[in-house]
Amino acid sequence: MINWQSFPIRSVLASLIVITLYGCASAPEQSSPAINAVQAVAPNLEQLTTKQASQLAQAKTQLNNGQYEEAKKILLKIHRSASNVSVLSNLALAYYKSGDLDSAAKFVGKAIQIAPGQAQIHNLAGTINLHLRQFQKAENAFKEALRLDGDYALAHYNLAILYDIYYQDIDSAYTHYLKYLALINYEDKQTLEWVDQLKYSITQE
């Protein structure tokens, strides 16, 4: 039984903004599907004026503070005059956080068109598709993030959650949980405990 409201926001790894999904009650509580947001993509920022860059920073702060509507207004204003990947990805985040998944998917798609080589954007796309229950698209997005960055801990984690909760593919989930834990030096104790339970269930099969 999935309880979408039972888990708090958590921050994993350094990021400008944190996105949180809500996971299954049977999964490790602190480790419900958490996906960190897109870092600013420096080469694309040169398209912004000094004023727009300042506005973008303000919008990111608002997103961190849960002021999603205010952030959207600023980001949409910038977007009308600049097609910038950081603006687009944070617009996707703002719409995702405010519950408009279709708009979130539209803007993350535009961000991928501009910066197809950014693993974090594909990870964000996976987050949105997971909430849209488009599981194959979510899996493809997380795998693309890992193709671009094999050491992207959260993409391993999100694949593990997808395989664990939605696909019931425990062997694959276990593999990606282990890679995630190794990349963060085993500092996520609740996930470590959950993986120990999975290991036991695998050995009993």
Rank of each mutant, 00 (worst) to 15 (best):
L13D: 08
A14S: 05
A14C: 09
A14N: 14
A14W: 03
S15Y: 01
S15D: 09
S15T: 06
L16Y: 03
L16A: 04
L16F: 03
V18P: 00
V18F: 07
V18L: 02
I19L: 03
I19A: 11
I19P: 01
T20P: 03
T20N: 13
L21F: 12
L21N: 10
Y22T: 00
Y22L: 00
G23D: 00
C24F: 06
C24M: 01
A25N: 04
A25L: 02
S26A: 09
S26R: 12
A27L: 02
A27Y: 04
A27D: 05
P28V: 00
P28Y: 01
Q30L: 10
Q30V: 08
Q30W: 11
S31Q: 02
S31L: 09
S31R: 10
S31P: 01
S31E: 07
S32G: 07
P33E: 01
P33L: 08
A34W: 14
A34N: 15
A34Q: 14
N36M: 06
N36V: 12
N36I: 12
A37P: 14
V38H: 06
V38I: 03
Q39N: 13
A40F: 15
A42T: 09
P43V: 14
N44I: 03
N44R: 10
L45C: 02
L45T: 02
L45K: 13
E46A: 11
E46Q: 07
E46G: 15
Q47P: 00
L48P: 02
L48Q: 03
T50H: 07
T50Q: 14
T50L: 08
K51P: 00
Q52A: 07
Q52R: 09
Q52G: 02
Q52F: 01
A53I: 14
A53C: 05
S54N: 00
S54P: 00
S54D: 00
Q55H: 10
L56M: 02
A57V: 15
A57S: 06
A57M: 10
Q58H: 11
A59H: 02
A59F: 05
A59N: 03
K60W: 03
K60C: 00
K60S: 02
T61C: 13
T61M: 12
Q62H: 13
Q62C: 11
L63D: 07
N64S: 06
N64L: 04
N65V: 05
N65S: 15
N65L: 12
N65E: 09
G66L: 04
Q67P: 01
Q67E: 13
Q67T: 10
Y68L: 08
Y68V: 12
E69T: 09
E70I: 08
E70K: 09
A71P: 12
A71L: 12
A71E: 15
A71I: 00
A71V: 10
K72V: 08
K72F: 04
K72L: 14
I74K: 06
L75G: 05
L75Q: 13
L76W: 06
K77V: 08
K77P: 05
K77Q: 14
K77L: 10
I78C: 15
I78N: 15
I78F: 13
H79T: 14
H79Q: 11
H79W: 14
R80L: 13
S81Q: 13
